Simulated assay, not measured.
Amino acid sequence: MAPNDQTLGNNELGAWRIFSLFMLLLQKGPLPSAEIYTAIYSDLSTDSALRTFSRDRAVLKQLGFAITEVKTGKEKSFYLSDSNFFDSSYDLSPEDANQLLVICSAVLTDTTFVYQEKLRNALSKIVGNFYSSDSGKPDSKKLSASSQSKVFPVLYESLSSKQLVNVTYTNSQDQIKQKRLGVLDFFVSQGLLYFVGQDFSSGTESASIKTFRIDRVLDAAILKDEHFSIPKAFNSNDYNLLDFQLGSQAGTLVAFVPKNILAAFEHFSQGQGDVELLSNGALWTVAYAHENTALSWILAHGLIPRFPESLLAKWKESLSEVANGR
């Protein structure tokens, strides 16, 4: 069945037939086999129509659209199930959702990008719907997830419009604080989404730049006509910290990096700290906020701590427990 009576080659005719079958099932369904054969395969014999329809179904299945058959009386009917239109294996993971937001943040702050607002709205819906889905989540996490779906678009509006945002935030001590922030950037660490914000809560002259976890934001609202500007010396890489660095600095650690993992270390250390190359590896000096988290990070990545003594003692204890099977 060629469009507009055009003459098509075999490949073109096959493609057009498959497309016609897809569109027919997309608009109606379930459709009896007789109606499908009349509409799509009328120029073929009964046996040829059966074989061709079977091949066309296989092609559509390869494209991600399986045709389901049901028995309706003495005749079979066919339809495209709604489940065909989204493969759950491609569902967003928490890491995917966070990375999507971070990747797009540069475009969202580019005033020359004419679809800035539309992209921001689309991201709010895509990622917001992901975080607001309560299925399979314990009750303790549902409030946080719902809250995130509401605050994402507000924080992005602050980032793109350079307007201050009033944030209700729960800190690491579970204290609820009200803050006036200017959102400067977003980043991901250990699967969690953070944002960098300039804190104007105590006045603009002493505004400090801090990192905040998005899942700790309970509410956010744009403060109309209260604008801020990004500091000239601001560099987002200075705030894209490792998980054990997030928080108030508690000290500085020194760790030995074996030579055989130096290449990998350059990747997973994210450029944090200072590196002194040695003949057999390197010494890494970096600030930390949480000693136990730093220990877990060092153990996971195969580093050997040298300082502080408390961290070295915990590291030796951990290795002893592993050696003794505890």
Rank of each mutant, 00 (worst) to 15 (best):
S158Q: 14
D110K: 11
I103H: 07
R120N: 04
Y156R: 07
D110Y: 12
L184V: 07
S140G: 06
S144F: 03
N121H: 10
N129C: 07
Q148D: 00
S172P: 02
K118T: 13
T112V: 08
S201H: 05
E95S: 01
S124V: 01
Q116N: 15
F113R: 04
E117A: 09
I176G: 10
K118M: 13
Q190S: 08
Q148T: 07
K150F: 01
S206N: 08
D139K: 05
D219K: 13
L108K: 15
I209L: 04
F130H: 13
Q116A: 09
V151R: 00
K210N: 09
V151W: 01
S158P: 13
Q190D: 12
T204G: 03
A220G: 08
K118F: 09
Q173P: 02
S149M: 00
R213H: 08
D87K: 14
L100T: 05
S161P: 08
V154K: 12
G191R: 02
R180K: 15
Y131G: 00
Y169G: 10
Y169P: 10
V217R: 00
V102D: 03
V107I: 11
T111E: 14
T112R: 14
A207E: 04
S161G: 11
E226R: 11
A106W: 07
V154E: 15
D225S: 12
I103D: 08
S172A: 11
V183C: 14
D110P: 11
S202P: 00
L184Y: 11
T111R: 13
C104M: 09
V154W: 12
L184N: 05
L108E: 14
V167S: 14
N129V: 03
V183F: 07
S172K: 07
T109E: 15
L123C: 00
S158G: 15
A220Q: 06
G128K: 02
T211I: 02
F86Q: 05
P138I: 13
Q175H: 10
Y90Q: 15
S135V: 07
T168N: 12
G128Y: 02
I209A: 03
S149I: 00
T170R: 11
I214D: 10
F113H: 10
Q163E: 13
L155W: 04
G191A: 04
H227D: 02
V127E: 02
